[in-house]
């Protein structure tokens, strides 16, 4: 009775570049790394940059190109944030892995196979400071036999002693053309048809994050079949149509509380995620050229607070209403202080 389960490999995995030189748009990084590969002399490395720019891909590709499929298992350790990463885990897991000796630096099966192991720590910025400190000692102890690849979004969250031990590579957000060419490549492989409007929508909603673009594409393909329109993509991505955001913004500008309240009610009833609403409203406010910096600051401060409240589990309607009311007060130059505050 139960239907079969097809192996539904995520396209993100399926279309991950296998070679360093295939990594899109990161030319300098690729140049340096290719050099590294040729000499098989490799320092500790720290990759940072916004999500979906190819950091993990690059790290995996290097590891593969250095060791080849046979040795990969024994030479490379991947740890990412979904693994438990307390201090103890870092100590024991890495120690166990690093302390097993490696063979000599013989070339095997066409791969350089340098005499060290690689430990890839994905999402390293979500590690606690204590764990990072513990790691620093571990790095020193096993520096002869291991190389660490740290991958993170925010370099500021990596403690200085760790960062200074690594060669740092900054990954920049992908430009629209690169993204488009990549997407079109996948579409061709999967037999999808995308019109140009959908294509530009896709690159705008994914904001330089290729992984997100691919995930959205796959979701849309599953739900809507092989012909995908721009609205389908918006529906799948959870992005709110720009028109809705604009309407709210206009309602704020009107200075009429009740009409804004109605607008908020509508947004909630439509089921749009409020956190997404906040970030899109943020974009609108920041880009608006008819309001003063002070007004923008007032609005943004309140947006930040509301976002934190949402994370704490506060009610979406009330938070959005608060944001709306505050925005309205800022836009219409009503006093910031409440008049009847005791």
């Amino acid at each position: 009775m139960a239907p079969l389960l097809q192996s539904s490999q995520p396209w993100v995995e399926k279309y991950r570049p296998k070679q360093v030189k295939d990594v899109a748009h990161q030319d300098e990084v690729v140049r340096v790394l290719t050099n590294t590969l040729e000499t098989s002399n490799c320092p500790h490395m720290l990759f940072y940059g916004p999500p979906g720019t190819g950091k993990t891909t690059t790290a995996l590709a290097i590891a593969h190109q250095l060791f080849g499929p046979e040795l990969y298992k024994s030479r490379v350790l991947e740890l990412n944030a979904s693994d438990d990463r307390g201090i103890n885990v870092v100590r024991t897991k890495i120690k166990n892995f690093a302390s097993v000796a490696v063979g000599s630096g013989q070339r095997q099966g066409g791969y350089p196979c340098p005499p060290f192991k690689i430990i890839i720590l994905d999402e390293a910025d979500s590690m606690t400071e204590d764990a990072q400190n513990a790691l620093r000692r571990t790095m020193e102890t096993y520096s002869k036999v291991t190389r660490f690849f740290f991958i993170c979004n925010y370099i500021s969250r990596i403690i200085e002693p760790l960062a200074s031990r690594c060669a740092k590579f900054r990954f920049k957000p992908l430009s629209e053309e690169i993204m488009t060419s990549r997407i079109l490549h996948i579409c061709k492989e999967e037999g999808l048809s995308l019109d140009s409007e959908a294509l530009s929508t896709l690159s705008s909603i994914s904001q330089g994050d290729l992984r997100r673009a691919i995930t959205h594409l796959q979701g849309a393909a599953r739900l809507f079949g092989s012909t995908i329109s721009s609205t389908d993509l918006i529906g799948v991505s959870g992005v709110i149509p720009q028109q809705v955001v604009e309407e709210l913004y206009v309602a704020c500008k009107s200075g009429n509380f009740d009409s804004a309240n109605k607008e908020v009610n509508k947004i909630i009833a439509e089921g749009y995620p409020v956190s997404q609403m906040l970030s899109q409203l943020f974009d609108v406010v920041v880009e608006a050229d008819d309001i003063s910096d002070e007004q923008k600051a007032r609005i943004c401060k309140n947006l930040a607070e509301a976002d934190k409240c949402l994370v704490d589990g506060a009610d979406e309607y009330l938070q959005l209403l608060d944001v709306t009311s505050n925005t309205m007060r800022a836009l219409c130059n009503m006093p910031q202080e409440f008049s009847f505050e005791s």
Partner: peptide, 19 residues
Amino acid sequence: AELKHEVCHWAAYYEHRMH
């Protein structure tokens, strides 16, 4: 109307505290 802003701000504030 002038009171509405203030009241809805506090409602949001205390609802957050509730969580």
